[in-house]
Amino acid sequence: MTLTVTMTLNGESVSAEVEGRTLLVQLIRDHFRLTGTHVGCDTSQCGACVVHMNGQSVKSCTVLAAQADGAEVSTIESLAENGELHPMQQAFKDNHGLQCGFCTPGMVMSALDLVANNPDPGEAEIRDWLEGNLCRCTGYHNIVKSIAAGAQAMRS
């Protein structure tokens, strides 16, 4: 049985035929070809698949596409404008907040949810917030620095 899912994806109204069991991340990557959102663990632990749904960060490997019917979904592709990186992306670049880059889209989308809740998060709060995002390269130190710098750039 298929069903029609309609959502606002990165500001555009889109719809697709999906199965009940289709995951949001499959819809985003395989159907809409937005491959910035990654599948790391596929078990809702690593956070590489974090997107925003109705303004909140969610793990899109653990949301059914059907659950996003009528929702506003935004992915990492929504951030850069006219070829210019979002301040949070720029901060990751400037602070060496990534090595292989696989976790980075999820890190950035998670960080933006944190900043939406608290425009000036402290280091402890940033580290606590990153509970659901795994990075196997950096040891997190520069990611934490990047998020603090990104938050500061967004405030100014």
């Binding site: 809702s44 956070g47 998670s110």
Partner: peptide, 9 residues
Amino acid sequence: IGDPQVRNR
């Protein structure tokens, strides 16, 4: 509970 994304859902 869990992490921020789990708590959001």
